Simulated assay, not measured.
Amino acid sequence: MFLRGISGGERKRVSIGQEILINPSLLFLDEPTSGLDSTTAQRIVSVLWELAQGGRTVVMTIHQPSSRLFYMFDKILLLSEGNPLYYGRGSNVMDYFASVGYSPSLAMNPSDFLLDIANGVASDESMKQDDIKEALVGAYKTNLVDNLQAEIREHGDQVNSSDSRDRNKNVGDWPTTWWQQFCVLLERGLKERRHDSFSGLKVGQILVVAFLCGLLWWKSDISHLQDQIGLLF
């Protein structure tokens, strides 16, 4: 007699629920809506959106979102061969492309339309793909780049003011102490290696590498941080 197991969608929902129950401050999700129907995907993204609104950081990738999911995105960055075509609110993206002369010939999912636009495919089949891409890059530089630069400057001013307040409070170079960092990394390492078998050779290798890394970072100048990270790789 065969027993029915759980489906792929049920397994995905259980995995996501299990991660949420841990109550993490940072949550990584790789395409959590793949293989799910639109209603279930909407519920999952809504729960994740509420978690993000509550102060948690949620980083996820999404594959072929529905129209409802698409309009939940705060910001959209559309690239074509490394060139930006759009940056702004997701709710305004269709109106923007319509204003520059590119709109779908029939009602369609905005994510599908943006994918076509990024590949130089438009309703006007007489235009070449390279010409469409060049026209969209030119429209971005004319209409959106100034707003993006203003937003970057505003964000930079906020960061600088925050840094000045921190300096006034005599905060050190590092937000956490050496002991706090050591405890976090030790706990993570033990969780990852709890099922591994250790030998004297492996323990010795780890201790030697840890000692060499300690010498590399000991009393180091923060200005050489990038060089030290490169040496580790």
Rank of each mutant, 00 (worst) to 15 (best):
L136W: 00
D157P: 00
S123Y: 05
I44T: 05
R68Q: 09
N160I: 09
S197F: 12
S66R: 02
D131G: 01
V159S: 07
Q53W: 04
P175F: 04
S66F: 05
A118L: 06
G120K: 01
V137R: 01
L190H: 06
D130E: 09
P24R: 03
L27D: 02
Y140R: 02
R165I: 11
S223E: 11
A135V: 00
T61R: 06
A122K: 00
S161P: 01
S46Q: 13
Q18E: 04
L48E: 00
F233Y: 14
G54S: 11
I6F: 15
S197H: 12
N109P: 04
G82Q: 06
A118P: 00
G230Y: 14
Q180A: 08
S199K: 09
L216W: 08
G204W: 06
S67F: 02
W49M: 13
L115Y: 10
E10P: 00
V45F: 03
D74Y: 09
A135E: 10
S25P: 06
G230S: 13
L114C: 05
W179S: 14
G55D: 09
I20W: 02
L185I: 02
K191T: 11
N160M: 11
A107P: 00
N119F: 10
T176S: 15
H195K: 11
L114V: 02
G17M: 07
A52F: 05
A52P: 04
Q53G: 07
F182N: 06
L69F: 03
D116V: 02
L225S: 12
H195G: 03
I229S: 06
E134C: 03
T40R: 04
V59N: 02
L106I: 13
D37H: 13
L78Y: 02
T39K: 14
L21W: 08
G35M: 05
L3D: 07
M94W: 04
S162M: 14
L77P: 03
S223W: 04
E81K: 10
W178Q: 08
V58T: 00
V209F: 12
D221T: 12
Q205Y: 07
S164D: 13
G200C: 10
